[in-house]
Design a protein around this nucleic acid. Structure first.
Lengths: 345, 345
DNA sequence: ATCTTTTTCGCAAACGTTTTCGTGTTTATA
DNA sequence: TATAAACACGAAAACGTTTGCGAAAAAGAT
């Protein structure tokens, strides 16, 4: 087991000082050609690589960015990570992942763990519990300590940092207008509770679209799912809610704020012998894999998750590498895109 | 912007030495009660936290494990990560992610980047390209340098390290035998090329099950997909291949080595007006989300991805924290479990 | 009052780098 | 030949910790 070799070992072996070795390896003009060659050869032979930790300590930066997300077993978030990782890697940064599991405490602990020198900056999406509590002290603390943050998707206005979001409002409006343009008159909305900004904005887009088209919104057509229930139970109760809705009203279009709700709606429709898209049209909101492979395949509003990750990474690295004071904060809104599939033909 | 406070700053402020501060904060008996109190109060006030990097340098360990996977936008891998992260966190470790993107070069670079002090050990799943090239020098190098590795799912025998796999062979055999027990006579297999051990073993299980039940294997019933083609093209060509297969033979059961192939098979069956499960039964191999939400829902062989991650993390941390020489290597085989759903009723 | 013990604290080294500033040696210049 | 310039290298500090050991001061024992 050959341990990794250090400057000191090389110096001892060759009989020069540590600084000479360091300079030789960085090809400094201070060192004579002959010694340089000897040292470089030796280093190559023993496969010398500078110790990252020592470099981090010296340079006071780690070239690592911390990513805190609520959940990783989720197509949207994993795609964001992929985007982050890609540009981070290209620019010489590593990515360290922390999962909050939608829990406030885990979010705080994770951030504290990483903030003590392990990383240079954060990219994060806020957990539901944090959004509910509206306790953002860990974010402000981090920023106060000079550790920049970029938030994506789930953001809050109160915090002074860069933000990357999708145009939830606009995307929902367009989605519902697509349904209307296809002739739907009675359009239902399946959404989450309002405390997640994303859900609120999407609801707003739905209402706006109806309003713009002189359709009177009907509160019976709006299903607000309590997704705090992590188990599958809430899907079952959602199913029965949808079934009730579809039985009591002649709904001919459904807009769901995420993929799972849309798929569940499809399932219920099928159960009630409603043909998609003839009798009822459905649109979801997501980038997921379910929509693409469902049958009929599901029309969705794409969030451009990977792009979101790429932009977030670019923002944080730019900020880290500019020596300006991090005062001006950007809000980047990524336009959505409707991917038309069979469920709205 | 209040920067994070260091021992030195506290020492200067209070007028004692750095070592006194350090000892006071670690509640050493060497320090007088009064000074201890004063120092602790000050540290609390300024929210002192020891710098991780400095600790890493001093202790020569980072309490971080590097995870190298081929792809993160993938239900299986993200679930493994979730498992890893959970036990790693519980034991005070961080997780840093590297994506190989199924590329040999990226795998090597990622590992070299992390091996220079950034992490204490690796958990990884080998990229397809690496498996094809059969070039494993980066693994042996890492191990030679005293950096332990745990491989999961995609492993190779040649490397001396802990391995965690699912019982692919047994799982496939049981899956095919389930089809047989349900009365299927002509069972097709949709698999990948053989260089991924996983695909090879699953094929073997299929053949064995047929053999055990005195069914003669028919090479026409075996579809080997070239999944090097990352694009969606290969799914379309797979579709036509399956269609050809189903038209020319009266296949009444399909075993697919992953979720996507199974779903694709379902799609084709539906197109050909074959009822699932009445006319044809289908089983997939995976933990994915598609199977659960497909309609009819898809019977699958569960790989226990999360558990795989948990065990991998436990193995690597145990190894890191035992001061024994890392000589004895374990091979952990996780039993599969068949999750019966509608596609084989 | 003297000696021993205890208490309380600081020095210095170590982890592995990079870099500034000297210093000694060699070579070139007057 | 004396002096200046060029060259080749080393010492030391710094990043932020922890810890063994020595030493000063205080307390106790005789």
């Amino acid at each position: 087991m050959r341990q990794t070799v250090t400057l000191k070992q090389i110096a001892n072996e060759i009989g020069v000082s540590i600084s000479t070795v360091s300079k030789a390896l960085r090809n400094s003009v201070e060192i004579g050609a002959e010694t340089k060659l000897k040292i470089q050869a030796y280093a190559k032979l023993y496969n010398y690589r500078p110790n990252n930790i020592a470099l981090s300590l010296k340079n006071r930066k780690t070239k690592t960015i911390g990513v805190i997300i609520p959940e990783i077993v989720h197509h949207f978030f994993s795609k964001v990570i992929k985007g982050i990782e890609q540009v981070a890697n290209k620019r010489g940064y590593n990515v360290i992942i922390g999962l909050s599991n939608e829990s406030f405490d885990k979010e705080v602990i994770n951030m504290q763990l990483l903030a003590n020198g392990s990383i240079d900056g954060f990219i994060l999406s806020i957990s539901k519990e944090t959004l509910l509590k509206q306790d953002y002290h860990h974010f402000t603390e981090s920023i106060d300590q000079g550790m920049p943050i970029v938030m994506f998707d789930r953001v809050v206005n109160d915090i002074k940092c860069d933000k990357v979001v999708v145009d939830d409002y606009e995307g929902s409006r367009k989605a519902v207008e697509l349904l209307i343009s296809k002739g739907c008159k009675n359009i239902a909305l399946i959404t989450t509770k309002d405390y997640v900004s994303v859900g609120r904005l999407r609801t707003k887009g739905y209402l706006e679209a109806l309003d713009l088209n002189k359709i009177v919104a009907n509160s019976e057509f709006i299903l607000k799912v309590d997704d705090n229930d992590v188990s599958d139970d809430h899907l079952e109760s959602l199913e029965s809610d949808i079934e009730k809705l579809l039985k009591q009203n002649k709904v001919d279009g459904i807009f769901a704020v995420n993929e799972i709700y849309a798929i569940t709606a499809m399932k219920v429709a099928r159960k009630l012998k409603l043909n998609i898209p003839e009798n009822i049209k459905i649109i979801g909101f997501t980038d997921g894999v379910l929509s693409k492979h469902a049958s009929p395949s599901l029309t969705t509003v794409s969030q451009h998750a990977k792009k979101m990750g790429e932009i977030s990474a670019k923002l944080i690295i730019d900020k880290l590498e500019s020596n300006e004071t991090h005062e001006n904060n950007e809000l980047i809104i990524i336009p959505t895109e409707i991917i038309e599939r069979e469920s709205t033909l």
